[in-house]
Nucleic acid binder design. Sequence first.
DNA 1: AACTTGACGAGGG
DNA 2: CCCCTCGCCAAGT
Length: 120
Amino acid sequence: MTSYSDQQYRERVYEIVRQIPAGKVMTYGQIALILGEGYTARTVGYCMHSVDDGVPWQRVINSQGKISTDRLTLPHSLQQSILESEGVTFNDKGKCDLGMYQWHPKGHEPEPDGQTRLFG
DNA sequence: AACTTGACGAGGG
DNA sequence: CCCCTCGCCAAGT
């Protein structure tokens, strides 16, 4: 049974978000992928509309490296300024470099995928 | 029970 | 880079 109002369901999302250090971000889809079963980028986004205290909600953005909270409960300008204060920079198009700022939880680092191995 | 609505994402033009 | 279409899945009507 998975529903957005189910505290258990949302808590799994927050548990991951709480691991994101300042200066780093994660995407909705990335979180959904880690949680798997029952979670999609959309459902993760839905869980984020109201979070528990202590959850760094501002560190979750979309896969394009942009902020999705436009004209919603939270002014997207606020989210960007908070992230900038944490060290995340955005270009003139309102986009940040995910390759530079995306955080990967322990045990979920991206596959090295061989090649470019500096040492034999 | 059908239809619309999202803090989404990948793909194509 | 921007815009649109689909697929996604639970909520609200």
